[in-house]
Amino acid sequence: MIPTTNRSASTALTPEAIAESIAADETVASEPVALYALGLGDDALVLAHRLGEWITHAPELEEDVALGNIGLDLLGHARSLLTYAGSAWGTSEDDLAYFRGESEFRNRQLFEQPNGDFAHTIARQLFASVYFDGLYRALRRSTDPTLAAIAAKATKEVDYHLDHSVQWLLRLGLGTEESHRRMQRGLDAMWPFVGELFRAETGLPEGGVAHVPLDVTDGGTLGGVVVDLEPLRSAFDEIVPRLITDAGLTVPTVPFARGGGREGRHTEALGPMLAEMQVLARAHPGVTW
């Protein structure tokens, strides 16, 4: 259990409180729970880094701050989730973030997609925020108390992230001819990675080949712990096309990509991003500043 004394006044759970609870042998994730947390943590970490790349490049200073804020919220989710995942293997959040290779990252491929122009980023944010919003709302009811506490904090934050992307979707879609064209291009570019968001969570490869789906059935190792993705998919299908058409844009019809991020299969974009994200920690292991 997480000691309540380590929480801030707002009772929001911090990565430091999780780490202390792990150090005191009070919190240990089982391997399947850890793999689940690792996947969610990687989603948040990779997208946080992408948003960080916008700093000094956004259309205005104010938008640098807006995207940076969203990125920092996501980094907070990643820190908590990776810290918790690491309790299964005796590794820290930094070990997991900086010392795993590309094929060991379990993020779904949407989150690693390059920023492109501002409209590409807004399209990626829109899909990501709808996904996170549904995910964390549902995860608050997880039977795993640590995951439920992480989700409770994240829910308030992703609600605002969704608002930010919807506001920009409307402005770009209904703005000028050029902003409309770019917003449509952004939606079309990110759409292939939507399908993977709702595919089953998988565990580690068995026999070195196939990744077995995690057992999420009632009474299974993860029954009641993880979020059922089917209602999330239905909610996404109901919300997103309406938002897109409200902005005067067309719901993309491009087919979904193969995916496989949870099994460590990634697009060519992730490697260079990780190289930049990890170079400092690898050149100076244990460095602090």
Binding site: L61, E63, V65, A66, R171
Partner: peptide, 11 residues
């Protein structure tokens, strides 16, 4: 700076 009042409140 903001493009309109709605975004100004958010910024």
């Amino acid at each position: 700076h903001a493009p309109d009042s709605t975004m100004a409140v958010r910024n």
